[in-house]
Simulated assay, not measured.
Amino acid sequence: MILVSFIDFLLVVVPVLIAVAYLTLAERKVMSLFQRRKGPNLVGPMGILQPFADALKLLVKEIVIPVQANKKMFIVAPIITLCFSLLGWVFIPLREDVLVSDINVSILFTLLVSALGVYGIVIAGWSSNSKYSLLGAIRSAAQMISYEVSLGLIIIATVIVAGSLNYVEIIMNQEIYWNILSCFPLLVMFYISAVAETNRPPFDLPEAEAELVAGYSTEYSGIGFAMFYMGEYANIILISCITVILYLGGWWGFILFNQFSFVVKLSFFLIAFVWVRVAFPRFRYDQLMRLGWLVFLPVGTGIVLFNSGIIYGLNI
Rank of each mutant, 00 (worst) to 15 (best):
S267P: 04
I123N: 06
G88T: 14
I310R: 05
Y191H: 12
V274A: 02
I103E: 11
A53Y: 02
Q287Y: 07
Y147L: 09
I176V: 11
F52K: 00
K29Q: 07
V149L: 07
I242Y: 00
V188L: 14
P15V: 06
R36H: 10
T110H: 03
I171H: 01
V30I: 12
V304Q: 10
M31K: 15
S128F: 12
S217P: 05
P298V: 13
A162D: 00
D54H: 02
L25E: 01
W293D: 00
D97F: 12
V64N: 09
M230W: 07
G88N: 05
F225I: 00
A208S: 15
K61A: 04
I171T: 15
S106Y: 04
A53T: 01
E209S: 06
F306G: 06
V188H: 10
I121W: 10
V20P: 01
Y285I: 08
V188F: 12
I92Y: 03
K265M: 05
F268P: 03
I242P: 05
D286T: 11
V195N: 06
L294W: 10
L294V: 06
V118I: 15
I121H: 06
I123T: 05
G300E: 13
F6R: 10
S193C: 09
S133Y: 10
F74P: 09
I138S: 02
N179F: 09
P45R: 11
F74T: 03
P66L: 04
F91M: 13
P51V: 03
L108I: 14
S182G: 15
L59P: 06
L42M: 12
N104I: 14
A141C: 13
N70W: 15
I170R: 13
I138N: 08
L288A: 02
E219Q: 11
S85P: 12
N173S: 04
M144W: 07
G125M: 11
E169D: 15
A272P: 08
N307D: 13
I170D: 05
Y167M: 15
R139Y: 08
F254V: 03
F109N: 06
I121K: 03
I123C: 14
L3T: 13
Y119N: 14
M31W: 04
I255T: 12
N307C: 02
